[in-house]
C-alpha cells in the first residue's frame, strides 16, 4: 500500500481516527506520519514504549489518578540526572543508577507490584566487595535453613547451619582484616 499523503513511499503507519462520531482511516509512510504529528514522542522523543509501560503499571501521564505516584512524591528529583519522579512515571525509565536512591521511598511498592519482591537473589558481579557476597550467601542459606526446618528435614538443616557458621566466621575474619588494614 502506498502512502496517502506523499504517494511515493510504502504506507507503514495505519490508524483510524473517530472524531465526533466520524471515522477516518489513514495509511501513511513513517516520515509523513511524523510530519503529521502522529508519531510524536514526548520527552525528547526517546520512549516509544512509554505508554504501554505506563498503562501496564497503572501510571497515567500527569500522575493524578495513580496510587503508586503520590502527589507529595511527584516533585522528588534525582540530583544526578535531573529526572523527577513524575517524569519517571510518564516514561517508565530511570535516568541513571542514582535514581534508585532518589526515588527509594516510592520504589518498594512498585517492585512488589512488578516482581512480588524487592530483594535480589541472583548473580553478584565478581568485582563486588567479598563481604557483600558473603552477606548475600548467608542470607540465602538462612532462608533455605528456615525452609528445611519447616519441612522437618533436620539433617539437611544441621548441615546448612554448619555452613552458615563457617561463612559467618569467614566474614568476621574478613571484616577484622579489613579494619586492621584501615
Amino acid at each position: 500500500m502506498i502512502c496517502e499523503k506523499c504517494d511515493k513511499k510504502n504506507a507503514t503507519v495505519h490508524f483510524t481516527k473517530i472524531i465526533h462520531g466520524k471515522k477516518t482511516e489513514w495509511h501513511l509512510c513513517e516520515s509523513c506520519a511524523r510530519e503529521k504529528g502522529e508519531l510524536e514522542r514526548p520527552f525528547g522523543g526517546g520512549f516509544p514504549l512509554h505508554q504501554f509501560f505506563s498503562e501496564m503499571m497503572g501510571f497515567m501521564p500527569g500522575g493524578s489518578s495513580d496510587k503508586l505516584l503520590p502527589q507529595a512524591q511527584t516533585g522528588v528529583q534525582c540530583s544526578c540526572c535531573g529526572l523527577t519522579y513524575a517524569q519517571f512515571g510518564q516514561i517508565g525509565r530511570f535516568g541513571c543508577e542514582n535514581c534508585y536512591e532518589a526515588f527509594a521511598k516510592c520504589l518498594p511498592a512498585l517492585f512488589r507490584k512488578l516482581h512480588g519482591s524487592q530483594k535480589h537473589r541472583g548473580k553478584i558481579p565478581l568485582r563486588t566487595d567479598k563481604g557483600v557476597k558473603l552477606r548475600k550467601d548467608i542470607a540465602l542459606l538462612r532462608e533455605e535453613l528456615q525452609r528445611k526446618i519447616a519441612e522437618e528435614a533436620f539433617e539437611e538443616a544441621a548441615a546448612l547451619r554448619d555452613r552458615i557458621k563457617k561463612l559467618e566466621k569467614e566474614r568476621e575474619a574478613g571484616g577484622a582484616a579489613g579494619e586492621g588494614k584501615g
Binding site: 509501560f53 530511570f94 543508577e97 530483594k119 535480589h120 558481579p125 557483600v132 552477606r135 548475600k136
Partner: peptide
Amino acid sequence: SYAFHEELGYLTACP
C-alpha cells in the same frame, strides 16, 4: 564496573 546495588541487584533503565 557495573551499576549494581546490594539489595536490588543489577540496576537497569526499566524497573
